[in-house]
């Protein structure tokens, strides 16, 4: 169905971006370009990390792929569908808690099924299965404010998994967690990813996190965000993050990012002190 519109890529790819751009408040005085000329192919089951300085548009790209925002240039495809609206096939997990505080854990996890009008038994069964996978079956009947930050993010992951997504989009999901919890959550995420077979697109500004998780790291330039380079992490899993190779990769990624961070800083200073 998509062949006449986009003959130049395989419709089996999980995400395909062609010339994608986004300008916020386009056509007004406050218009600013967040993304430009993004070309990207993501294979099914691939773990891709978006790395870049703050405000480089990497989260914007994630929102575009989720279908929550419209691209102002180019096209995005996911498998054989053109991305125009959000879809349960592409679940998004946010940095901040996005659980519904008035629902219990299991009701949160099965929210998507409730939308489709599934019966209570079916919803509970699906929620139980998803919570089993994130190791939170015991917290099923608790409310979100009774859980720790790490547990809440695991519930958010369970909620995304309950939709059986083909693409899992994660917007700095562990940024608000402490270092130890984050390391545990990374291991947990890798397990979930291996089981689910979904592609993961993971936004972060932590180089350590990128090296720990990614098959490929997409390094972004500062505003407007473009792809500076795509850096493969071909370390065998489970990874030894203290190995010489891992260290070398971290150093190389740091150097790739440094210019961009410097540029972003210079821009912000120029903005703060008008001539």
């Amino acid at each position: 169905m998509s062949s006449e519109n986009a003959p130049h890529f395989s419709s089996r790819d999980a995400v395909v971006c062609r010339g994608v751009g986004k300008t916020w408040a386009a056509g007004t005085k406050r218009a600013h370009e967040a993304l430009r000329d993004i070309d990207l192919d993501i294979k099914p089951g691939e773990f891709v990390v978006f790395l870049g300085p703050s405000g480089c548009g990497k989260s914007t790209l994630l929102y575009l792929i989720a279908g929550l925002e419209d691209a102002t240039a180019g096209q995005i495809w996911s498998f054989s569908d053109k991305v125009e609206t959000p879809s349960p096939e592409r679940s998004l997990i946010f940095q901040e808690t996005s659980l519904f505080p008035w629902l219990t854990v299991w009701q949160n996890v099965s929210f998507g099924l409730a939308i489709r009008g599934a019966s209570q038994e079916e919803r509970r069964a699906v929620a139980a299965e998803a919570l089993q996978r994130v190791g939170l079956i015991a917290a099923m009947d608790k409310r979100p404010d009774e859980l720790s930050g790490g547990m809440r993010q695991r519930v958010a992951v369970a909620r995304a998994l309950a939709m059986r997504p083909k693409v899992l989009l994660m917007d700095e999901p562990f940024a608000a967690l402490d270092v130890q919890t984050r390391a545990r959550m990374q291991d947990f995420l890798l397990d979930v990813w291996r089981d689910s077979g979904a592609s993961v697109l993971f936004v972060t500004h932590h180089i350590d996190e990128a090296v720990a998780l990614a098959d490929r790291v997409v390094v972004f330039t500062s505003r407007p965000g473009r792809i500076k380079t795509i850096y493969p992490i071909d370390l065998p899993r489970p990874r030894n993050l203290f190995s010489r190779e891992a260290e070398t990769m971290r150093i190389q990624l740091t150097e790739l990012l440094r210019d961009e961070v410097d540029r972003a800083f210079a821009e912000q200073e120029a903005f703060a002190v008008p001539a």
């Binding site: 349960p88 679940s91 998004l92 946010f94 996005s98 519904f100 929210f111 409730a114 939308i115």
Partner: peptide, 29 residues
């Protein structure tokens, strides 16, 4: 209302009336 909550419902395929009934109204209570 926290836009994340609305976006979660949107990615799960909630329609506009569903978002109002299941997210916005409980959130503003």
């Amino acid at each position: 209302v926290n836009t994340n909550l609305i976006n979660v419902a949107r990615t799960m395929g909630a329609s506009k009336p569903q978002i109002y009934a299941r997210v916005i109204v409980p959130a503003i209570l």
